[in-house]
Each structure stands twice: as structure tokens, then as C-alpha cells.
Design a protein around this nucleic acid. Structure first.
Lengths: 198, 198
DNA sequence: TCGTTTAGTTAGGTAGTTGAAATTTTTGGA
DNA sequence: TCCAAAAATTTCAACTACCTAACTAAACGA
């Protein structure tokens, strides 16, 4: 039933590096030898798969944006704005993880191409509302989403239960990773790999 | 046991756009109404999760590279080279999906920083071997891999069967997406939205 | 009303990217 | 052997994307 998918030889992308000393040994200390090795293998395997996904997606993104006559970054901005039809530079920049200055530049480009317009907000005149234009909405709709197309095509071929499982797993991984924004502090403060006790 | 993960409200990143006309209707034609709606929902959900993963990873990548004193692109090159200890510009550029010209520039930077050396290949003197230096290997080993660390930490907390399922699903998705390189043609030939025959 | 905070922009500089042209070497004939 | 075509890399010119720091304008609080 479950077709076995062979992935190992192909191109294992940027091998997830042997597991890290400090962090890992803390974990391994609580496991027996065999359990430890299995954990390492599993994490490695998962990260390899994750990186393959990332790589594939990155490439789709480029093709996609090119097809829409935009750069990847510009396209992402337009996508975000198109969700509600408008947004503010600040909100978009936070969402995308870039600085406001960068956002200004990106919006300049999109405005010049007639994809969005800027208008001073009524609510708070410090703010600028970025509003998607007819043309911008069109660009989003027209753009063939390679990622989506390929995904749909293959997703459809899966058994029902497989689809369900896939979704559950993806959401789990997503939650594992982007919880980062919520409790980042204890994990991301390694400007001090050197000595301080975290 | 299985904690339910709530994802829907938070930040659905760049909503996966209503499904595409041509492609989709071809699929839907073969399904009843209810089946069609469920498929759409599932694909949407999956893509949202996938994009959350991408977003989180992209941000990790930045932090990581910064910690290593490199840019994300430079770091990726170094990772690829470190797999076998050496590689060629052509191979790396293909692997990363960038042009050779770009690769030359990136390698220039890494060479200047002493992370890799260039040496004319013995095998074929048109080629240049990019060899990782002691320092380069050190940078890779030292670099705290935020993605990995967070992933390990949370992965370890999962039940055994959950880990296994996660791996299976990730590999499945990876296979779904990066088969792209093998049969891309029928899907990616939309250079003709504008007019020119590709 | 005076300082502080917040939103956005501008300016200056670094990095990544590409296409086209030039360079060097290899390869496969005639 | 000699040469043209092919291959790997680099150089060049032009962009695009980003970041930090400095600056403007509006809002807000005491």
C-alpha cells in the first residue's frame, strides 16, 4: 500500500552536519546508546528532507516570480498585501522578516509597476496604507504557482489517509519551527557560544 | 496524547491563492463536489504549513549565517563544499540553482575570508577545485545550527511513532516537490504568458 | 507644551545575481 | 598534427535587495 519512497542517494542537500556538541549531549545524556543513535539518524533524515523541500521551493519561487514579471521579494509582498487587499509597510516587513527600509524600497518598485498604491491612513496619519490595485490582484491570480501546481498534482494521487497524515505532519513541523517567534529567547541568544551560561 | 496543534488563525503566510483554473479543473473534473472541496482544503492547508516552514527556516538561515560571520549564500556554499571537502564551481552552482557567474563571486568572497582555496584540477585543467580549508571546516562545525537545534529539541519530545510518521511524511513531500528536476518540462513551460515562445 | 514613541522615508554602502563576452583547456575529427 | 567546437571558469556592467543610521512627521502622555 505505502509505496516506499527512495530518497537517500539522490542529492542530499547540505548534509545536516553532525549533531552539535553542547545541545546534543544534553539530550543524549538522557538516552541509552541505541536510542541516541536512532534519534540522531531520525533528526538527520528529517532535516535532509526538510532541506530538499526548501531547496525545491526556493527554485519554484524564482521561476514563479519571473513569470509574473516581478522579483521573488516583490511577489511575496504582493501576496501578503493581496490577502486582505491592503496592509501597512510595517506589518508587511514584520511578516516577511525584513527591515522597514527594505520594505519601502520594495513598495516603491511595486508602486512604480502599478501593482499597489500608497495612501495616507485615515486612522493614523503616520501610517501609509498599501492597497493592491486591480492590476496587482490580476498578477497574483494570473501567476501560475508552480509549487502549488506540482503539489496539487501529486497530492491528488495520494490515498486519502496519506493526505490526512501528510497534513498532520506538516502542521506539526511548522509548529515546531515557527514557535520560534514565540519563545525564541532561550534558543536564539547565541551571540555567546563562547562561554556564558546561556 | 496527540496534542492538537492549532495553526489556522495565527499567521497564514501568503495564502496559497485560490486554486488555479486550468490545472485545477482538470483535476476536479474527475471528482464529485464534496471530494473536490475536501481536496482543495487539504492542499490549501498543506501549503500553508509548508510556507510556515519555509518562512521559519529562512529566518533561521539569516541568524545562522550571521553567527558564522558569513552571509546566508556564502554559508550555503560552504556547507555544500564541506560535504565532501571539495567541489567545483559548476557543481555547486547547479546544486544551489544559481549561475556560474554568481558562484564565482561567492567563491571569491569565501576565498578572501580564507574559508576555501581554489586549485586547478588535476583531472581536467579546465576545472577549478574548490577545497575547504581548516578554517572553513571549523566555521561549519562551530556554527550553531538554529534550525537543527530547535528541531532536535522538539523532535526529541515526540513519541516514537510520531517521529517515524513525521519522517515518512517529510520524505514524501520532498519527493513530491523535487522530482521537479526530473519531469519539470510539462509543468514549467509557462514562459509564454507574454508572447514569446519561451 | 515638551519629551518619547512610532511609522515611514532617505542616504550610503555591501552582497547577490545575471547575461554576455573573454580565457583557457579539452576533445574529436580530418 | 592541427583546428574548430565544446566545456569550465572568469570578467564586466548593470541591477536588485538589504541593512544601518539619520531624519521627518504624527501621536501620545504627563
Amino acid at each position: 500500500m505505502t509505496k516506499h519512497i527512495n530518497t537517500n542517494e539522490a542529492d542530499k542537500l547540505s548534509k545536516p552536519k553532525q549533531l552539535q556538541s553542547a545541545e546534543l549531549s544534553a539530550i543524549l545524556g538522557r538516552l541509552d546508546k541505541k536510542g541516541a543513535r536512532r534519534l540522531m539518524e531520525r533528526v538527520d533524515t528529517s532535516l535532509i528532507a526538510l532541506r530538499r523541500i526548501l531547496r525545491a521551493t526556493e527554485m519554484f519561487g524564482r521561476d514563479l516570480a519571473k513569470a509574473a514579471g516581478l522579483t521573488p521579494a516583490q511577489f511575496r509582498v504582493l501576496q501578503v498585501v493581496s490577502e486582505k487587499g491592503w496592509s501597512t509597510p510595517k506589518a508587511i516587513s514584520q511578516r516577511m522578516g525584513v527591515s522597514q527600509a527594505t520594505m519601502t524600497a520594495l513598495i516603491d518598485k511595486l508602486e512604480k509597476k502599478g501593482m499597489v498604491t500608497r495612501q495616507r491612513s485615515e486612522r493614523d496619519r503616520r501610517q501609509t496604507d498599501i492597497v493592491i490595485t486591480e492590476k496587482g490582484a490580476g498578477a497574483i491570480d494570473e501567476a501560475p504557482d508552480a509549487l502549488q501546481q506540482i503539489f496539487v498534482r501529486r497530492f491528488e494521487a495520494l490515498e486519502d489517509w496519506e493526505q490526512a497524515q501528510l497534513i498532520a505532519s506538516l502542521e506539526r513541523v511548522a509548529a515546531m519551527l515557527d514557535a520560534h517567534e514565540i519563545d525564541a529567547a532561550p534558543v536564539l541568544d547565541w551571540g555567546d557560544i563562547s562561554g556564558k551560561p546561556n
